[in-house]
């Protein structure tokens, strides 16, 4: 399986000593961690702790004053067909309200030289068959999430970066995302997902990175981080309240 090999080579996320200020406010202060292939890395912390800022810097959307964020040793912005390497969902679908879900997926696919057949495949994968022909302004929040995930899967990437993927999803959606995440990691993919809800993460993550006030409070395997705290939730509150 050639594709499997490529996946293994497209996988390590390295965040190295990233600091970001907005005006006088320090948003991130020397953030460092690694997300590895074959593992689901949970990036947890309270709202405003710097989770989204870190992921936005990783994807080249925001600029950091210091440090660097790399995918397989190079910045995301240096990738020519990034969708085949990294699939990302940040704050929603990224689709304009006046487009249909299918039209949105088609332009995203075309920008990376991916086929229309693949568009139909991800529509089916995300369970959007009946919604794909409708305008995004008529979508529920959960359908918007599914559309975002469908776009992230277009290039069958080795890396998935998901910011608060469970927001707005119904029970079926939550289950779908959990299965997806586990399946991708088992196949050798790297999954980095952020959440402020512990209960959703405890069952699916292998590694945990806890961020609080723009600094990393803890990182390691699930056992490392929860060790001595009873549960991930207890660990989370102990680490983020100090």
């Amino acid at each position: 399986m050639r594709q499997g090999l490529i996946r293994l080579h497209c996988g390590v996320i390295e965040i190295e000593n990233v600091s970001k200020r907005r005006g006088r406010v320090t948003v991130l202060d020397g953030v460092s961690f690694v997300a590895r292939p074959g593992r689901v890395t949970g990036f947890i912390g309270p709202n405003g702790a710097g989770k989204s800022s870190t992921l936005r810097i990783l994807l080249g959307l925001d600029h950091a004053q210091e440090g660097r964020a790399l995918v397989d040793g190079s910045p995301f912005t240096a990738l020519r067909r990034p969708l085949t390497c990294v699939g990302a969902v940040l704050d929603g679908s990224g689709a304009h309200r006046s487009r249909t879900g299918r039209a949105h997926l088609r332009w995203v696919a075309a920008s990376n030289g991916l086929s229309r057949r693949r568009v139909e495949e991800v529509i089916e994968l995300a369970g959007l068959e009946s919604a794909a022909g409708k305008h995004v302004r008529g979508y529920s929040l959960g359908m918007g999430r599914r559309l975002g995930l469908a776009a992230a899967l277009l290039g069958d990437p080795g890396v998935l970066v998901l910011d608060e993927p469970f927001n707005g999803l119904d029970a079926g959606g939550v289950r779908w995302v959990r299965d997806l995440v586990r399946t991708r990691a088992r196949a050798g993919g790297t999954v980095l997902l952020s959440s402020h809800l512990m209960s959703e993460l405890a069952e699916i993550v292998d590694d945990v990175v806890v961020i609080s006030g723009g600094r990393i409070a803890a990182r390691g395997t699930l056992d490392d981080v929860t060790g001595g705290h009873g549960s991930l939730e207890d660990a989370y509150f102990a680490l983020t309240s100090s």
Partner: peptide
């Protein structure tokens, strides 16, 4: 809204 800023995509 299900639609969000397209610049991210």
């Amino acid at each position: 809204a299900a639609s969000t800023r397209q610049i991210v995509a």
